Simulated assay, not measured.
Amino acid sequence: MSLADLSLTRWRSLDLPAARRLAQLAAERAGGRVAALETVEHLGAPLHRVRIARGEREFALIPGGEVALGFDADGWRSPPGLEADYAESAEQGYGCGPDLRAHLAQVLSPRRNVTVPTVLMAVEAEKLTAPPAGTPALLAAEGLRVPSSDEWEHACGAGARTLFRWGDACPLDRIPYGDDSGPHQQPNAFGLRIAHDTYDAELTSDPGAVHGGDGGESVCGGYGAVLAWLPLATAQRNPAMAEFVHGPEGEEMYEEFSTRPVLPL
């Protein structure tokens, strides 16, 4: 099997020796080395997790293929407490409607099937060192690129169809910022440190989408627990933050934002 044919479904069907061979092939193609290969439990089945070191960066192997992305608001079943917490925020007039399900349909990307390539994606997001318009050229000089919005969402959720990468529920007794014990602090299924800090807004190649955080707006605004956790939702694209980032003020504050370099295979 070649890396070009490596879909998430096929990757999950491989035994450990076969996964090790493909991990080594990816490392050789990237000019790096396999730093770790482990098998974790994900969605009720084993999933191999690979980290490849290249220079000062570590990348995770993200198998692609045809994948389901987005959030099905109509078919979603709300965990206990979320709707009540959201209703309290709505009553205080934080610019959201009275119904949580309708709000999710507005702010999350819709359910859809897309095809994404197999890539290596940086385990950690990196702060921008140039305005958004100049970032792609800087990465290209290193053989890297900015991820697409679909690639980011797939890498974050790793096939999960839940609201967050760890499930549908979020802690209602605290907000994510300053919480070192919450589910957002754990590496995701592919080994990425992703969607873990609402202040860390990650740019993609889509100027209308910023992932992983809202620049701290919801936390600073005291919007309530659910609205504070929602910027970490896998399908959340934070369009208002994206407009700010790519506007005049964002161009001046570029060092506050991040991106997650991708190494094509």
Rank of each mutant, 00 (worst) to 15 (best):
G191S: 02
C96I: 15
L22E: 05
L25G: 13
L203R: 03
P79V: 08
E56K: 13
L172A: 10
T259A: 14
A68G: 10
E66D: 13
P176W: 07
E217G: 14
P264M: 10
A158H: 08
T204F: 04
A141Q: 13
Q92M: 15
F164N: 06
A137D: 08
T118D: 01
R193H: 15
E256N: 14
S149Y: 03
Q236W: 12
E66P: 11
E142K: 11
A125Q: 03
P79M: 01
L82A: 07
L265N: 02
M241T: 14
W152F: 15
E56L: 12
V146M: 15
E255V: 12
N113G: 14
E58A: 11
Q106I: 00
P248W: 03
A73S: 12
F71Y: 06
A140D: 00
L263P: 04
E243A: 15
G167D: 01
V40K: 09
P17I: 09
Y94R: 10
T115K: 12
G222A: 04
H196P: 02
K127N: 11
E251L: 11
P239T: 01
V34G: 09
G212K: 01
S148H: 05
A53S: 14
F244W: 05
G224H: 09
D197L: 01
D150P: 06
T204N: 01
R145P: 00
E66M: 13
S2A: 15
G208P: 08
R112I: 06
A84F: 11
A19R: 12
G216Q: 07
E126C: 02
G157I: 07
D72T: 04
D74N: 03
A140K: 03
L172Q: 10
F190G: 00
A36K: 12
G64F: 09
E66V: 14
G213E: 03
E126Q: 13
G221W: 05
D5R: 13
E38M: 06
G191C: 02
G221M: 08
P46E: 08
L120H: 00
Y86R: 04
R20H: 12
P80I: 04
P117V: 06
L100E: 02
D74F: 03
D179I: 08
A45P: 08
P46A: 01
A45G: 12
E66R: 15
G97D: 01
N188M: 02
G213K: 01
G191H: 02
V34F: 09
E255H: 14
S109Y: 09
L108E: 03
E256M: 14
P79S: 02
P187I: 03
Q186W: 13
R111A: 14
P231G: 08
P248A: 13
M253D: 12
V116N: 06
L227M: 03
P261N: 06
G191A: 04
Q185G: 14
A102P: 04
A122H: 00
P131H: 06
S13I: 11
V34S: 08
E124L: 15
Y254W: 12
G208E: 14
L263K: 04
R54V: 14
T135E: 13
A68E: 12
S218W: 01
G216T: 03
S205C: 10
L128P: 00
A36C: 07
A36F: 05
A140R: 08
G215M: 00
P187L: 07
P207T: 05
G95N: 00
